[in-house]
Design a binder for these strands. Structure first.
Lengths: 342, 342
DNA sequence: TAGGCCCTGGACAACGTTGTCATGGCGGGA
DNA sequence: TCCCGCCATGACAACGTTGTCCAGGGCCTA
């Protein structure tokens, strides 16, 4: 700090400003601003002189200052669970594409499923004054966002509903999808069907479990406690859960996997199992067609696109009441879900 | 402002500033700044009053103004090809993780392999005054970045070298990896080996092709023109190319796939082929272990991490000469690459 | 008790841009 | 020829924050 004061000459890292351009071009500051922003009221000759000065100095407008003056940043924030998860890549890309169409940049961050980290990220984005936020909630209490939303930050929650706050949401039909997937197994003759899902704190996890229960009830099957496993999706736990369900005197004959990570591990476990066990997974997976894995597919890109379009509609205009959109899922039969009970 | 005085609650779309907080807490503006930034020199009592005002008003510091004053944005930009590509997800996440450790946010954008779009994105990021840039080049001329780098924007190029400019780079050993992969096929008795890669404009594509040629030459094999196909990686073209190589009087007995997208399509084509054709792919793929696909694997997360660490080292300090880092690849044998010639 | 020091707090300028408004020159219509 | 009005241009304030510097009060010391 004192260092900086004593050495006022860190030329390296200093960028030319409009003032510098103006001086070099021999015009006023505002004229440079006009040229940079393609505003009318500049003669071609003046414009040329200014443009030359810009090129010569390598001037680039400082958007921070611009934002300060104009109030909008032309950027939106996306907070998701993990960018490395193959479900979120396409979702993020879809959001980016919509943002681009609206001239906005995308800042994104991974919450790692940690509510505190989600909060930190979201607030950091608000401090940057993003115009809008798309959040895949990790926590279940988003009241901390109330002042932000009131202040005009458009916010859309995705994949899971917001906690204790009224806001736009774009969800997939987790309940219906799981119900359909489990019913599919029932149709193929299964009655002892296992469910392996994510932690119950996660909304989609409980919705899918609810769908499982509904389908079982529809079929008149009483679910046994040891057919259901909820918890982290790390391979170790999922493997243990699957193996437990597949052993014992009355093993399950089919598995329903609650998300893509669970499905992957389940496939690995089943590959080493001599019995032929049926499997339906929630979320599609690359190469699942080649492996013949039947899935309940949700279109990640469509979810992202829908959310982003919602966001910009809200940014552009009317302050209609918060809406809740639910996108359908699609059962894709590829073999693993059509195996008969062993 | 007089308005604000009459309505203690902030109006929709207007955010409270430090001035508002100061007024409400009955202190000076700078005192609020001190509290917000945890600077010393504020009595506990004053701090409490300020904090109360902050909470009551829902104040959030405006980082745009802060940036304007301080010069650093604590954000870095990542320009890659396509966030939806499973190779870039983990890379991006790794970059984010390093950025987070340095208190920086990540802005990323997809160039869609379009040089002009890459340029637009990069310059937009520079206008936002990101502290640093990580770029996976789409174009082959990056002289447009010269003024930016001179002005102090730390820049690291990843996966492919920068064009006509001297800068830091983090690459994978495409040449060596491809050479090793093709040699692996040779070792298993193949002589007629096909190569399907990306457009020659892309550096990694030509490097991998070079590795292929080197391995063939090492083995004393003369490559026939129709064994090599370079072009877009869309499934249609790759499928056609693979089918062409697999038909005719002297079909290839093995394929080397130039990247993950090509590998995926190749696997699909080979699955419908009655002959058993060997396959080695560049880049690992989820579930490749279950499908028994032999690959030359590059660690996307390691690439991202290395690049980001490089970036922050440069940001933090010494202006050493631009470095070029090359990360090794690893051959993972899983079956498809060990098939004998049919 | 006086002098000096430290500690808290605030006034003010500056960061780089844009919006507002004033100015001066020039052309056209009367 | 004169005046009006339009157009190009620039001076200036403001956006919200932080750095600098100064003021005033309390306390310690001589």
């Amino acid at each position: 700090m004192a260092e900086t004061a004593r050495h006022p000459e860190p030329r390296y890292g200093t960028r030319p400003t409009m003032k510098d351009v103006a001086a070099r071009a021999g015009v006023g500051l505002k004229t440079v601003s006009r040229v940079v922003n393609s505003e009318p009221g500049v003669t071609p000759d003046t414009e040329r002189r200014v443009q030359e000065a810009i090129d010569a100095l390598g001037f680039r407008r400082n958007d921070s200052a611009r934002v300060l003056r104009k109030g909008r940043t032309a950027s939106i924030g996306l907070v998701l669970e993990d960018l490395a998860d193959p479900f979120y890549g396409p979702l993020s890309r879809a959001v980016e594409e919509v943002a681009r169409a609206h001239g906005a940049l995308l800042i994104n961050g991974s919450s790692a499923e940690d509510p505190e980290r989600e909060r930190e990220l979201v607030l950091a984005l608000c401090a940057r004054r993003v115009d809008g936020l798309i959040v895949i909630p990790a926590g279940d209490d988003h009241r901390y966002l109330e002042p932000e939303i009131k202040a005009g930050v458009a916010t859309v929650f995705v994949d899971r509903p917001a906690g204790r706050i009224d806001a736009d949401m774009v969800l997939s039909d987790s309940f219906g999808g799981a119900r359909e997937g489990v019913a599919h197994l029932v149709e193929h003759g299964h009655r002892r069907i296992g469910f392996i899902g994510d932690r119950p704190r996660i909304h989609t996890a409980t919705e899918r479990l609810r769908g499982y229960h509904a389908a079982m009830t529809d079929a008149g099957i009483t679910v046994q406690d040891d057919w259901v496993s909820l918890g982290t999706t790390d391979p170790g736990r999922v493997k243990a859960a699957a193996e437990a369900m597949l052993s014992g005197p009355e093993p399950v004959t089919a598995l329903f996997a609650g998300n893509n990570r669970v499905t992957v591990t389940a496939v690995r476990v089943l590959a080493e199992c001599e019995r032929r066990v049926a499997l339906v997974g929630f979320d599609d997976i690359e190469l699942a067609d080649l492996l013949g894995i039947t899935v309940v597919s949700q279109d990640a890109a469509a979810v992202g696109r829908t959310a982003a379009e919602h966001l910009f509609r809200r940014l552009d205009g009317a302050g209609h009441a918060p809406a809740r959109v639910e996108l359908p899922t699609r059962l894709v039969a590829r073999g693993s879900g059509e195996l008969p009970p062993a």
